[in-house]
Simulated scan of single mutants.
Amino acid sequence: VVFLNASQRYDSLIKWLEDTLNKPIQSIKSASNDASFRRYYRVHYDDHRTCIAVDSPPEYENGAKFVAIATILEKMGIRVPRIKAKDLSKGFFAVTDLGNETMLNAILSKKIKTDHLYKNAMNVLLKIQVKGLECQQNLPLYSKQDLLDEMQLFIDWYCFHHLQISPEIMADFDFKKIFNNLADHALSQKNVFVHRDFHSRNIILSADAELGILDFQDAVSGPITYDLVSLLKDCYIKWPDNQIDRWIDYYYQRLVKHDLIHVDINQFKYDFDLMGIQRHLKAIGIFCRLNYRDGKDSYLLDIPRILEYVAKTVKDYPLLNPLQQFMCKHVF
């Protein structure tokens, strides 16, 4: 197998698009960059028509999974990019263009009421969780090893690489025990369809204000609070605690109504908070890795926000006391 470099892949993608669309391409521009090896381009062709070209190198990305999850979500009635053409061996896709107005942009530009937008996003999530029950068995399980490996990124890339803390110092804090507890707690929750990156940058407002969903190819069967905490304790935008609490209440009531949850609201908030710690430790590690390994330094700017979430939550739970001590001593 010969792997092409970025420039060769771009040239190969253009040729594939011209052959596939069978129309002259008028312009092609970068549509977005995410935290993976995928690249997205907005393609203008055939007098004002657009599509999104996805370059998803097969040596790094699972193209077949992208197709499978897109199909599942579309059958649920969720707005996702529809696949117009694909070449799995090359890792090239042409998909429908949902637009370029992310939920984050809409919030920052104050184009739409925030509460309305979040409730809409939670309604989409609820639909995924309710309808996803039928197809969960087709998804990989979010295993204990997955959860532990993700938290280990915090140690490897943030503590060792970014903070330059020695393994000897790290041994003073029993992270293995904390990680085990967090993973076990996550696994004790009800399992549902988990998007795995459900946040304001991956939700698109279409022209009719209907919400579309992106970046779903890593979906798993996993904890019911995972996507909710991704949305409400978003790595890219922060809300006051009382606002987050109101949204949790809104979502919890809907889960109860659909008989999806059988714990009380206090337990649900506890599950939500601990799930948030697992996700945020992972995110801090990934954002550091993006900087040091992949040369994407913009994500470092989001780390203080995520650390703030962690610092606030660890104070409330004795289980997380060693993590609190570590942060007091080495982070703040």
Rank of each mutant, 00 (worst) to 15 (best):
L88W: 05
L255R: 03
Q243P: 00
S56Y: 04
D146Q: 07
L98H: 09
L323W: 11
T71E: 14
N120C: 05
L274S: 08
S32W: 03
V67P: 02
V130L: 10
L290D: 10
V43Y: 00
L125H: 00
A183P: 02
N191R: 13
S56T: 01
Y118F: 15
I112P: 00
I203N: 01
N120G: 12
V43G: 03
I224H: 01
K315H: 13
K176L: 06
S221G: 15
T20S: 15
Q189H: 02
T102M: 00
Q145P: 07
I69F: 09
D47E: 15
R39G: 05
I286V: 15
M151I: 12
S200E: 00
Q217V: 14
L231S: 12
S230Y: 03
D156C: 05
S36W: 04
L139Y: 06
V194E: 01
I286Q: 02
S188M: 05
S89I: 14
G91D: 03
M151F: 12
Y41N: 01
L232N: 02
L21E: 14
I165A: 01
A121K: 04
D97F: 06
K144H: 13
Y252C: 09
L182G: 12
L21W: 10
G91E: 00
M170C: 14
Q324N: 11
D55L: 07
D55Y: 06
D19Q: 11
G222V: 12
Y250N: 10
D215C: 11
L205D: 02
F92P: 03
